[in-house]
C-alpha cells in the first residue's frame, strides 16, 4: 500500500507483541491534515497499541510509520520524544494531570518542556483554557475540579503547543454523555480551527460520530471502512 496522496501520518504493516500477546498483527493507517479519524474495535483488539505506535510512544516490532516524510520506526527514543513534544498532542482517559501543579501550570507544561519561558507559556496556556471554557480554573489544582473540567484542561494542554496531530485515547471514557459530548465538540472544533489531525481511539459510537471516518481494529488487524466499501 502506498501512502495516500496528501497524507500526514501513514503506517503500514505494523506489528507489535508484548511478550506472547500479539497486540498488532499487520495494521495499516493513514490520516490527512485536519481529518478526525476514529479508531474503533472491541477491547483488547489493539486500538491503544496502534495509537501508541502511531504517536511514537512505543516502537513497533515491524512495519513503517511515516510522519511528514520522516520514518518514525527507525528514530531513537530522544528523536521520538522531541517529535512528541513539538508536533503531537495527547489526551488520555484519566490520570493525566499532574496533581501537584495548578491547572494553568499543567496546560503550560508542554510549552515549558519545549523551552518556552514560564510567563509566555502560562499566557498561551490561559488563552487555550479560555477557548475550552475553563480559564476560571487556572489557579485550581486538578483535585479541585470536576472530571469534565479536568478533561477540558487536558484538551487545552494537548493543543497548547499547536500540534499537527492530536492523539486522544478514550478522551471521554470517564465522563457522562453531556460532559463527554461537550469535550468532543470543543476538541474537534479546536482541532479543526488549527487544521490538526485527530486520532481518536474510542469504543463509543456517539464519540466516534464526531470523526470524519473510522478504522476498525480487530485481532490486531486494521480495516479502513472507507476504502473497504
Amino acid at each position: 500500500m502506498n501512502a495516500p496522496a496528501g497524507s500526514l501520518l501513514t503506517a503500514e504493516g505494523l506489528r507489535k507483541a508484548y511478550g506472547p500477546t500479539v497486540a498488532l498483527d499487520g495494521a495499516d493507517f493513514s490520516i490527512h491534515p485536519g481529518e478526525v479519524v476514529a479508531v474503533m474495535g472491541p477491547s483488547g483488539s489493539g486500538k491503544s497499541t496502534l495509537l501508541h505506535c502511531l504517536a511514537g510512544i512505543v516502537p513497533p516490532d515491524a512495519g513503517s510509520i511515516m510522519y511528514a516524510g520522516r520514518e518514525l520506526a527507525t528514530m531513537n527514543d530522544a528523536e521520538r520524544s522531541a517529535l512528541r513534544r513539538s508536533e503531537f498532542g495527547f489526551v488520555f482517559q484519566f490520570g493525566q494531570l499532574v496533581p501537584e501543579l495548578t491547572c494553568v501550570e499543567n496546560v503550560a507544561l508542554p510549552l515549558r518542556l519545549n523551552g518556552t519561558s514560564r510567563k509566555e507559556a502560562e499566557r498561551t496556556a490561559l488563552d487555550w483554557m479560555g477557548r475550552l471554557e475553563v480559564d476560571d480554573l487556572a489557579g485550581k489544582r486538578p483535585g479541585e475540579v470536576s472530571g469534565g473540567q479536568g478533561q477540558r484542561v487536558a484538551v487545552a494542554r494537548a493543543l497548547v503547543t499547536g500540534p499537527r496531530v492530536l492523539f486522544a485515547d478514550e478522551p471521554t471514557g470517564a465522563l457522562d454523555s453531556l460532559n463527554g459530548e461537550r469535550v468532543m465538540e470543543l476538541l474537534t472544533d479546536a482541532a479543526r480551527s488549527t487544521n490538526a489531525a485527530v486520532v481518536l481511539v474510542t469504543h463509543e459510537a456517539r464519540v466516534a460520530a464526531y470523526s470524519d471516518r473510522e478504522i476498525v481494529v480487530r485481532d490486531g488487524k486494521s480495516r479502513d471502512m472507507e476504502r473497504a466499501v
Binding site: 459510537a205 460520530a209 464526531y210 470523526s211 470524519d212 473510522e214 476498525v216 473497504a228
Partner: peptide, 12 residues
C-alpha cells in the same frame, strides 16, 4: 463492520 460503518455514517 460494514453495518457499523453504515450506522456511523448516519450518526455523523
Amino acid at each position: 463492520d460494514s453495518q457499523r460503518s453504515e450506522h456511523l455514517r448516519s450518526m455523523r
